[in-house]
Amino acid sequence: MGRLSGHVAFVSGAAQGMGAAHARRLAAEGALVAVNDRVASPALDDLAHEIAGLAVPADMADREAVFAGLQQASEHLGEVDIVVANHAYMSMSDFLDHDEDDWWRVIDTNLGGTFWLIQAALPSMRRRGAGRVVIISSEWGQVGWPRATAYSASKAGLISLTKTLGRELAREHIIVNAIAPGVTDTPQLQVDADAAGVTLAAMHEEYAATIPLGRIGVPEDIAAAVAFLADFRMEALVGQVVSVNGGSTRTRA
């Protein structure tokens, strides 16, 4: 019996990287977990099988698909009472050169998609009388980053969403918090390295040099914080952003 036995979680963006780690950790704590990604894939199916959960492909930027996905999860696993909004679309560009449609795709996916996801999950949380929402923001949403206006704005928007929903929903025992991961070793890092024209190892080293702990994060570091914020024994932590970054910002929120 884990601390999340009897609970049902929905993790978006879970085919790989951090989302897959969150799903594995929540399942290890006893939750039934629906794993989502934008499209169906063998990786998503394999993960669902591995953790005895359910694969629910859906594009979080598509409100109808999000609602259908939550309904599917609740029908198969039971009423969802934990949501981990982990999905993200990343695109970097000089501000003036950033294609406008692509710029909005970042915002609509990361910020808008999380908004729909929480909206879709609220009815089942209300029926269960309690819920936990963990929003994955980013260090770049706290401190900004050059050539990442869309991504940083979307992640900063998630922090404001966390604070507001923290206030709005706490009386219903629906507790909303966020995590701001620092640089973490996920497949996205290889994409960033390719874009910057450097090797993955060089990118690891470059980032690690800026982190007091001397290493970048691993997905399991972030997943441990997700499990903590999904803990139903605690309500006093609400509307907060927990930074998990090896000391790179030391709580500048």
Partner: peptide, 9 residues
């Protein structure tokens, strides 16, 4: 449980 939290409040 949070080995990557440093200087966090």
């Amino acid at each position: 449980e949070l080995p990557f939290c440093v200087g966090e409040i």
